[in-house]
Design a protein around this nucleic acid. Structure first.
Lengths: 176, 176
DNA sequence: CAGATATGAATGAAAG
DNA sequence: CTTTCATTCATATCTG
């Protein structure tokens, strides 16, 4: 099923062209080379990479570039599609198959019971007490200090802040 | 981008109804028309709209409704996605070249074209203090800048900082 | 060459 | 705000 071009063929370098009369979109979409695919799959299956961060994407695409032209978004889309399609195929197994007469091409709305906001804004949590630490979800800033005296300093042209970032005390100098 | 404009005008055919063929059922998902997209982009790029308020969303969706079916949440999501993807795409491209020195070295001033310079004008009435995101892995501060408008904000009780942490622009909100 | 399939790209929606 | 999920479109590639 997985019809992948294992033959190198003319893959490298991207063929494209073909006198596309295309309205918009990709005249030349990225065609990964076999080496690129091999590395991508290795990352996916052996290293467990699923949704690489921006930094990882840059690193990966930089590595793959020696095997052919590639951009960061190609890597991004590749992982995204690979993951999605793996899940997609798996989902056919888990599907509750309500009825036997259903087409295989059913497009389940996939309403997972997610509430749909009455209006338009999926407004979230209620109003709680807004403690400063609460603002930081993933905790880059664990604590911070901004004494009033800093304001004076700032008006003088420089403000020095001490922030605790990821448990590490950091000094920030601001020039105004 | 805009691959298809599905101009509705009436949901033809119920979905999955018994005793019938599956004929082009109305997809649950909003498919913007080209006119709608044109206006949205105009608002985004020409008017600098990024995160419209409730009132703005109502107005915009009302205006777009003459070009096709649309709800407020569609507008909300559109701006959210458009903004996020503009940034994301840049993150793939940016070469962060973190300088791994705790010493304060000046790097690129984070002057960007996406946001209007007046983004922090004192008259904005948004009451969100919680805007911070993760992704600071090692937490040295590479460089920082404080626009003049931040001083005003600080006197008002809130100081907004934009820091470049590990080559990634981050915003910190401090309550004083 | 035509149809089927695999997959890159895009984007609405929503979760985190 | 950022990240992830689901779905759809467009096209490269394979197959007969």
């Amino acid at each position: 099923m997985e019809a992948q071009q294992n033959d190198d063929g003319g893959s490298s370098g991207g063929k494209g062209s073909s006198g596309g009369f295309l309205c918009r979109q990709s005249s030349t979409r990225w065609t990964p080379t076999t080496d690129q695919i091999r590395i991508l799959k290795e990352l996916y299956y052996n290293n467990g990479v699923r949704s690489p961060t921006a930094e990882q994407i840059q690193r990966i695409s930089a590595r793959l570039r020696q095997y052919g032209k590639i951009e960061g978004k190609n890597v991004f889309y590749w992982f995204q599609n690979h993951k999605a399609r793996e899940r997609q195929k798996k989902r056919f197994t888990t599907t509750t198959t309500a009825s036997t007469t259903n087409d295989h091409n059913n497009q389940t709305p996939m309403q997972r019971g997610i509430m749909l906001p009455t209006a338009w804004k999926p407004d979230h949590h209620q109003d709680h007490h807004q403690s400063f630490n609460h603002n930081i979800k993933y905790s880059p800033v664990v604590s911070s200090t901004a004494p009033n005296s800093s304001a004076t300093s700032m008006l003088g042209g420089t403000l020095v802040l001490k922030l605790k970032l990821n448990g590490q005390l950091t000094r920030v100098t601001l020039r105004t």
